[in-house]
Amino acid sequence: MSAYLLLFATAFGAATLLPFYSEVLLVAQLNRGLDPMLLWLFATAGNTLGAVVNWVIGWHLTHYVDRRWFPVRQQALDRAQRWFQRYGTWTLLFSWAPVGGDALTVVAGIMKVRLWLFLPLVTLGKGARYAAVILAAQAIGN
């Protein structure tokens, strides 16, 4: 069970802005013979919950825009909001992407996307990525 929890924690960290790479651990655990379905479940759940942390941060982020220490300029924030308004909540299906995926989940929070809409889209995208990693690893391993 500890191997699955380690994958959950690594996937959770990978969904935040921390430099974690859960796919490497996932493939290593798959090669050790752990259950692919449980690996998929723990990785998807951890990564999705990490994205929820990003969403919560984004939801509350705009309260601090006027502070000097705030790390993002208003202009960049406005540009991200316009982009999200243009392409919509369906972009959350791409929250799995290594570049920009985490930012999408933060912007979704800024844009006040409801959690009931956020969760299934992000879970579907992240679950599909982990399924693809597992299938690819199994195909290469055979």
Rank of each mutant, 00 (worst) to 15 (best):
M1P: 07
A3W: 05
Y4W: 08
L5D: 06
A9N: 03
A14F: 04
A14Y: 01
T16Q: 11
T16N: 14
L17N: 14
L17G: 12
Y21F: 09
E23G: 04
V24K: 04
L26Y: 00
V27A: 01
A28I: 06
N31K: 13
N31C: 03
G33S: 04
L34Y: 04
P36S: 01
M37F: 11
M37L: 14
L38K: 15
L39K: 09
W40D: 03
A43P: 00
A43I: 02
T44F: 01
A45R: 00
N47R: 01
G50K: 08
A51P: 04
A51V: 00
V52Q: 04
V56N: 01
I57A: 09
G58Y: 09
G58L: 05
H60V: 09
R67P: 00
R68K: 13
R68F: 05
F70V: 07
F70I: 07
R73E: 10
Q74L: 14
L77T: 06
D78P: 09
D78V: 13
A80F: 08
R82W: 12
R82Y: 11
Q85C: 09
Y87W: 15
G88H: 02
T91S: 15
T91G: 10
L92F: 08
A97Q: 13
A97E: 00
G100V: 07
D102A: 13
T105E: 09
I110S: 03
V113G: 06
V113K: 06
V113R: 03
R114E: 12
L115R: 02
L117D: 06
L117G: 06
F118K: 12
L119N: 07
L124K: 05
G125R: 14
K126A: 07
K126G: 05
G127A: 03
Y130E: 06
A131Q: 02
V133I: 13
Q138D: 02
Q138G: 06
A139G: 08
